[in-house]
Structure formats: C-alpha cells, structure tokens
Amino acid sequence: PVSLPPFFMRGSIIQLADGELKRVEDLKTEDFIQSAEISSELKIDSSTVERIDSGQTPNAVVIQFSVGELKAQVCVEVLGEYPFFVFGQGWSSCCPDRTTQLFELSCAKLCVGDVCVSLTLRGMR
C-alpha cells in the first residue's frame, strides 16, 4: 500500500475544476460531479464496495470494487485509514478512528455496499 498523501489532512485546500477552492472536509458529492462534468478527460464512476479483506501488512486492507455500468471488478490494497468519498455520505474508511486520529478528518465506516466516487478516462469504455 502506498503511504498516505497529505491532502486528506483537515484544512487542506482543494481546487475544483472551476477554480473554486474548498477545504477537504467541506467537499460534497456535487463538487466531484460538477468538476468531472467540466473536465475534458475525467469522468466520475460509481464504484460499489463488494468485499473488504485484510491485506499483506498489518494495517492494509484489500477492497474489491464493482466499477461503473460494466461492473468491472477492481481490487485495491490501501491502508485501513485511507479515506474514500461515498456518494451522498462523504469521507469513509475501513478504520475511521485512525483516519480521524491521523488527519483530523471526520470519517464514517466504509462498508460493503457503499458506493464510492471514482474516476475513469472519458472515451474509455
């Protein structure tokens, strides 16, 4: 699993596609949808959590997603505290307590059936 990027820290400044600046903790589902709508390259996909298993290292988890209309199966291995953005809910991780502790980012528990925001390239299907 990759080390955790700095932009999940509470207070990080995020630039939306229209140039607007928001703090990471203030992002809403619509911000991602609207940003993708004006992006020429990126498209939002809905990725449903199908399985969550433990990974190779103690804090790692393997999350299996069903991605997009084609329901492509994609597995990612991340640290348990890595947050995903769930549609209509916001930031969620497998270890929300650790996410909150490390990033001060308030976080729900990521569960099987949650639908996460993910990206694909436009023109790819």
Partner: peptide, 19 residues
C-alpha cells in the same frame, strides 16, 4: 499553502477495456 487538484482525492479505478 499547497493547493491540491480535486481529482487527487478520489481513486482512478479503470475498468478493463472492452470493445
């Protein structure tokens, strides 16, 4: 203060290319 692009925050999950 660093500014991060919105698309860094969500994973790029590419489905296997079909047709």
């Amino acid at each position: 203060v660093p500014v991060f692009p919105w698309h860094s925050l969500v994973p790029f999950l590419a489905p296997t290319q079909s047709d």
